[in-house]
Computed example of a mutant assay.
Amino acid sequence: MEPDPGRQHSDDGQWWWDGQRWLPALSLDGRWRFDGRAWRRNSQWREPSRAVLITGGIWAAALALWAPVLMMVLPAPSGVLDTGEETVLIAVFVVVVLLATVATGFAVGLATQLRWLWLASVVGAGAQMVGYVASMVLSDAPSADDFAAVGSIMLTGPVLLGITALLWAGAGLGRLATAIRRRMVRRTPLA
């Protein structure tokens, strides 16, 4: 199938028509793009896929909601955790949020440019801090408002660093999986 006259690239920009056949318009690593005359550095920002946006939205909501939900599920605080069940419940929530953060980084690493991780880090830290303040407001403690204010000031930096580290760890695993998949595809003989 030949393209419309005057068009050299496919609709998705991944292929280039040389007059006889379709050729890849992007290098294997996605850093170079053929414009019809020469290979040029591909610095174009690509939008994240719909799957990454949905995953990221669910992740941000989970970061914002896990602490307030935990505050509603746990009984009124008595100063210390009364049973091992409460400790296990808190640990489960924390592990799920940590794994969800790594999984979000993995999805970004698989599907899109890693530049988006910086924005995801800020969004994630903001969502986490909103959840923290909400959980302090829901708390029955007499000085919860003070804890919310002081905690939001003192915890924002460490939370941002932690979320950034987890996202980049997941993205590194995603890029590694992409590289392994590409290597396997290149080794597979065509039938």
Rank of each mutant, 00 (worst) to 15 (best):
S49K: 02
V88G: 02
L155W: 09
F106I: 01
T112I: 07
A177M: 11
L176K: 06
A144Y: 00
A111S: 13
A134Q: 02
W45F: 12
A91H: 09
D29Q: 11
L53Q: 12
G57L: 05
L155R: 09
L98H: 04
A107D: 01
P68W: 06
S10V: 06
G131K: 02
G151W: 09
E2F: 02
E2K: 13
P75A: 11
P68D: 05
D11H: 08
D12F: 01
R187W: 03
G79R: 10
R181M: 04
Q44Y: 03
M129D: 02
A165N: 04
V88L: 15
W45T: 12
R183G: 10
S49E: 07
M1K: 05
P24S: 10
L176C: 05
I163R: 00
A191M: 04
M72C: 03
T83S: 15
L98A: 14
D140C: 00
R186D: 14
W59C: 09
L63F: 00
Q8Y: 08
V94T: 10
T112Y: 05
F106T: 01
I153Q: 09
V52I: 13
D18G: 11
A25K: 00
G151M: 10
D4T: 13
W118F: 13
R50W: 07
G131D: 08
G174C: 08
Q8T: 08
L119G: 15
W118E: 08
D12C: 01
A165Y: 01
D29T: 08
V122G: 10
L114M: 09
E86V: 00
V88W: 13
V73K: 02
V69N: 05
P189M: 03
F106V: 01
R37W: 04
I153K: 02
A111C: 04
A134G: 02
A191K: 02
D29M: 09
